[in-house]
Structures are given as C-alpha cells and as structure tokens.
C-alpha cells in the first residue's frame, strides 16, 4: 500500500507540472503589462522599467518558466506583485478557513444526504422517494451564491440570528457563529448531491443476492439496510463525493464573497482584479494540489470501506 501511495504522489507531481506549465502560459496571454497595471497610468517609464526588472518580466520567457517551475515545486511561489508579501504566506494564512468551510459543508452533506438517500431507495417509487428526489434535484439546481443570499436574507437580515458580516468578532463562539450560514449554504447543495448518489447506489446494492439471502434467513430489515447494504453501496458514494469536492472548492469562492468571509475565494478575486500574476499562479497551484490530494484520499478510503480492495 505504501508503494501505491508513493506512486500516486509521483504521478501527481507530473499532473502538477503540467498544470504549472498551463498556468504559466495562461497568465501570460493576458493583454496589458502588469507593471503598468500595478503602478497606474501616471507612472514614469523608468519606474515601470524598474518594476519589470524586479519582477523578472524582462528575462527571456524560458528563463522565467524555469525559475517559476523549479521554485514552485519547492514551495517558493515568489512575492505578491501587489502586496510585496510572499504568496505562500498569504495563501497559507487563509487556506485553513476555506478548508474548514468545505469540510464542514461536506460533513453536513453526508449527515443529511446518506440517511435521506437510503430512505428514498428503501421506499422506492413511493411518496417519500418522489419527494426526496424532487427536493434533492431542486437543491442541486441552486447556484451557490443564490442559496447563500437566501440564507443571509432569512437568518441574518430578517431574523437577525447571525451577523450579516462574518468574522465580526473574535473568540470561539463568534468563529462558530460566522461559520454556520456559509457552511449551511454549501452543505445543503452537497446534501442534495449525496442524497441522489446514495439513492442510486443503494438501489443497486439492494438488488444483490446477499440481500435476498439475509432476508431469507431472517435478518431484521434495519440491519440489512444499515449494516450490509449501505456498506456495500458506499464506494460509489465516496467516489462521486470526492469528485464533487473539487466543484465545492470552486463554489466556496461564491460563498466567501456573499458572506464576506476571508479565504482562497476572496484572495483570487482580489488577485484577478489587480492582475497579481504571482498570486494567481500560486492560487492555481493550490487549487490543483487540493484536487489531487482529495483524489488520493478518495482512493485510499476505498480500502477502509472494503477490505477486498487491493492497491497494486
């Protein structure tokens, strides 16, 4: 298994390299000179030239590329072109907040989605099943920022249960209060998704022979469902949840904007509007890295769920 993990990590280095290359060129297609953008329209020619030198923009492209890739792989992502602080530090400062948001949303999704999906599968083609299917499809249709705005309107503005602006105060209580609505708005979309996947996966598992055998020998229905069937239905659920996590990390950008919550999302919006190339490059690497790590964790989870899974 360890050799499997090592091989997967090596393979992800290749993916990262390809992404780095893509990012490098993508960022340079932009019309406009970043030095000009940073210094504004009134900057003198000398000032612009000096900044271009400092940012390494005057070096030949292959030199820039080599520096970028070799430094990026050892965690040196340069300094922000706008703020002058190391990109790595800026990202690491807010990364826990985005991860916290996504993980709590994932937890909400699983806690709500797995039981609902199981229930729908067991009551197939009955009222409960239809209701759950329609509601979950509706939940899946929410753009992340619309659900966020609705929650904000209802719970922060109408009912005033939560602060309108997240991170209004410090301390554990405030931290928790500022997390509830953003996590809920992402979590409900996640729940809708998990519900649908659980339902289809459970339907397939419930049709297997061992379920009939268990019924025949008199195992209680609840035990068949929760202990035998669900465990067998879990692998497809984990797979799609893993894939969806990448989508959610993208969606968290919207949630962070609506709730004015610091995180990767606010960082990327700022970097885009200020043409902060180095920051953008760093952020793209981080996003890719997260997706790659999530994929590996997903793969390793299979072994935990199903002892028959072998890592070759």
């Amino acid at each position: 298994m360890y050799s499997y993990i090592i091989r997967r990590l090596l393979l992800s280095v290749v993916t990262l390299l390809a992404v780095l290359t893509l990012v490098f060129f993508l960022v340079r297609i932009v019309p406009g000179d970043p030095a000009q953008v940073i210094l504004g329209d009134h900057a003198t020619q000398q000032a612009i030239e000096a900044l271009r030198n400092r940012l390494g923009l005057n070096q030949p492209l292959y030199q820039q590329y080599w520096d970028f890739v070799s430094n990026a792989l050892v965690g040196d992502w340069g300094v922000s072109m706008v703020k002058g602080t190391p990109v790595f530090d800026e990202i690491v400062r807010v990364l826990p907040l985005t991860i916290e948001l996504t993980v709590v949303a994932l937890a909400i999704g699983i806690v709500v989605g797995v039981p609902l999906g199981t229930w729908a599968a067991v009551r197939r083609n009955r009222l409960a099943d239809y209701a759950i299917r329609v509601v979950s499809l509706l939940g899946l249709s929410f753009p992340a920022f619309v659900s966020a705005i609705l929650l904000l309107l209802i719970f922060s503005i109408q009912l005033a249960w939560f602060p309108v602006i997240s991170f209004a105060g410090t301390g554990l209580g405030n931290h928790f209060r500022s997390l509830v609505l953003p996590a809920l708005s992402l979590g409900l979309i996640m729940a809708a998704y998990v519900t649908r996947v659980t339902r289809s996966s459970m339907l397939e598992a419930l049709g297997q022979d061992y379920v009939r055998t268990a019924k025949a020998k008199g195992v209680p229905a609840s035990e068949i469902i929760w202990r035998h069937t669900l465990r067998n239905a879990l692998i497809p659920i984990v797979t799609v949840v893993g894939l969806f996590l990448g989508v959610q990390i993208g969606n968290s950008v919207l949630t962070e904007i609506v709730f004015n919550r610091p995180g990767l999302g606010k960082l990327i919006i700022g970097a885009l509007s200020q043409r902060d190339y180095t920051m953008l490059q760093g952020l793209m690497v981080v996003y890719t890295f997260i997706v790659v790590i999530v994929n590996i964790i997903t793969d390793l989870t299979y072994g935990l769920i199903d002892p028959r899974v072998k890592y070759e």
Binding site: L26, I249, G250, L254, M284, Y287
Partner: peptide, 10 residues
C-alpha cells in the same frame, strides 16, 4: 484537475 468555476473565472 481545476475546479471548473475557477478555470472559467481565470
């Protein structure tokens, strides 16, 4: 390997 919204955004 990119979240699609991030790719579109960039």
């Amino acid at each position: 390997a990119f979240p699609s919204l991030i790719l579109g955004l960039i």
